[in-house]
């Protein structure tokens, strides 16, 4: 697993058909995410960064180029195989948390394991461990509406981690949080990255992006600024 880069995108493009008009959101992007990477994708809204994130996470398929996730070409995968790939390889963290509102923190975290066919007892045990890891051992049986924004995002991070993914995709993870809480969430992501999980941050916030090992700046569906900061860089050139 460690021999194969987690994600390899080669000249990937994505075109949408909207009412008969084709709109190109990505026009040939190449990018590699290796294990342990800490990468920020920066860009204004409409730059194509969200589209790129959906592709990297296996939620969508490119209309051109090749995209390998966990060494598998997504073009050859059926929707159920894509679902399985997401479940095993990718962890998502969203700006708006996307927690199930009527469900406890523990069961929210356990959700991805449901689709892996793991029994309830083990799910709850593993979810408990993850919540401890993100510092929410005391909030396990609380529902999202009983928690602060920062706590909710920690629950979402625990959910993203529970399947042991190789890549954590975070879409504006601090966008709905105040600065202090945002900082602590970033610190959490960084400590997870230190433990070996690749983290890909999508953000329009330069300050947040600065903390990553390397940044990719997007504009109009293209990578315009490869700015390698980390010593192992060299990938990600357009």
């Amino acid at each position: 697993m460690s021999d194969i880069p987690a994600i390899v995108a080669t000249d990937v493009s994505r075109t949408y058909e909207l009412d008969g008009v084709s709109v190109t959101a990505l026009r040939g992007v190449s990018l590699t995410v290796t294990d342990g990477d800490y990468l920020a994708i920066v860009g204004t809204s409409g730059s194509g960064k969200s589209t790129l994130m959906h592709l990297l996470g296996g939620l969508d398929r490119p209309t051109g180029g090749t995209l390998l996730i966990g060494g598998r070409d997504v073009a050859t995968l059926t929707p159920p195989e894509m679902a399985r790939l997401r479940n095993e390889t990718i962890g998502f963290v969203f700006q708006s948390f996307h927690l199930l509102t009527r469900t406890t923190a523990r069961d929210n975290v356990a959700l991805p394991l449901v689709y892996r066919g793991i029994g309830r007892r083990e799910r709850r045990a593993r979810a408990g461990e993850m919540l401890e890891r993100v510092g929410l051992a005391h909030r396990m049986d609380h529902r999202p509406n009983q928690m602060s924004g920062g706590e909710q995002q920690r629950v979402a991070i625990a959910r993203a981690l529970v399947t042991g993914p190789s890549v954590l995709l975070a879409d504006e993870p601090t966008g709905n949080l105040d600065t202090t809480t945002g900082q602590s969430v970033l610190a959490l992501l960084e400590s997870l990255n230190a433990d070996g999980v690749a983290v890909v941050l999508v953000t329009h916030d330069r300050e947040v992006a600065e903390r990553a090992h390397r940044q990719i700046v997007m504009r109009d569906g293209l990578i315009v600024e490869p700015a390698p900061l980390a010593p192992d860089a060299g990938d990600g050139t357009a």
């Binding site: 679902a83 997401r86 998502f92 959700l111």
Partner: peptide, 9 residues
């Protein structure tokens, strides 16, 4: 969300 975390159709 369920699909994102691995639910099949």
């Amino acid at each position: 969300l369920r699909k994102a975390v691995g639910a099949r159709p």
